[in-house]
């Protein structure tokens, strides 16, 4: 059984009959696997990611489909259970960590918060664990970073801190929404290395939402290509990059090679 299975997911705006934002999307993530979800802006890939955690904007609604995580359909679960899943089982990495961290609290406080909700460690243990996490994601001087505020870190450090927060409660799956789009190319490579390291050491699965086919090629085992709310092609990453079947995938790859 897969870790996460999305079956025929359809998301619409305000329950109106217009063209759905996400149309009959099916996707599966196995334990320990990195799956890429590629597409242009507005193709519905982020919406798909958000619907897994029930974080959709109130104006959007899931019309049909199932999201099965560890044998439970998340769309039918109570809010209480979903809260345990969020962060505890599935955590999220956002595109711009500067916005995703609360600017008025220190990095340490915000990682600590994750542990507060998803573990029963006391404050001393949580502090120790926070330092370990910051060290694990390769931040120099964790003692100092713990006390820093988000705006005091550089973009790359912030994204590492965000990853530290995401893995804090030992989740089974991380949904990364364009995790490197706001970083420059060298930093992107470092973050990709970090993802590989985390996968190897912690055995996590990733659902990587991106428009960067280069990153997908480096990282993902399987890839799904989304276009206008639909998955147009899915399969092994190498296969998709070497022998794209769909017209849209070819255009995407063509754009990369220019």
């Amino acid at each position: 059984m897969s870790l996460l299975t999305i079956k025929d997911l359809t998301v619409v705006i305000d329950n109106q009959a217009q063209t759905p934002i996400v149309k009959n999307v099916s996707l599966r993530v196995e334990a320990g696997e990195i799956v890429g979800l590629v597409g242009a802006s507005g193709s519905g890939k982020t919406t798909t990611g958000y619907s897994v955690l029930g974080l959709l904007d109130p104006a959007l609604a899931v019309r049909a489909g199932e999201i099965i995580f560890k044998g439970k359909n998340l769309l039918r679960c109570q809010e209480d259970y979903l809260r345990k899943v969020r962060g505890g089982q599935i955590s999220m990495i956002f595109q711009e960590p500067l916005n995703a961290f609360n600017p008025v609290f220190s990095i340490g406080y915000q990682i600590d918060e994750m542990l507060q909700f998803h573990s029963d460690m006391n404050s001393e243990q949580r502090h120790k664990r926070t330092l370990e996490l910051l060290d694990l994601v390769g931040l120099p001087e964790p003692q100092r970073v713990v006390k820093n505020y988000p705006h005091q870190l550089s973009g790359g450090m912030r994204q590492r801190a965000m990853i530290a927060q995401a893995i804090a409660a030992n989740p089974a799956l991380i949904i990364a929404d364009e995790p490197t789009s706001s970083l420059d190319v060298t930093l992107q490579a470092r973050i990709i290395e970090l993802f590989q390291k985390i996968r190897k050491e912690l055995g996590l699965s990733f659902l990587l939402i991106t428009h960067d086919l280069g990153m997908v090629g480096h990282l993902c085992d399987r890839t799904a290509v989304m276009c206008q709310g639909e998955i147009v092609e899915t399969g092994e990453t190498t296969k998709i990059i070497d022998e794209p079947q769909h017209e849209y995938t070819k255009r995407l790859l063509g754009a990369l090679k220019v």
Binding site: L55, G88, M92, N99, A100, F101, N102, E113, M114, H118
Partner: peptide, 11 residues
């Protein structure tokens, strides 16, 4: 976005 992020960690 930090409100969404806070929601995503289960608050």
């Amino acid at each position: 976005e930090f409100v969404l992020a806070a929601k995503s960690i289960g608050l």
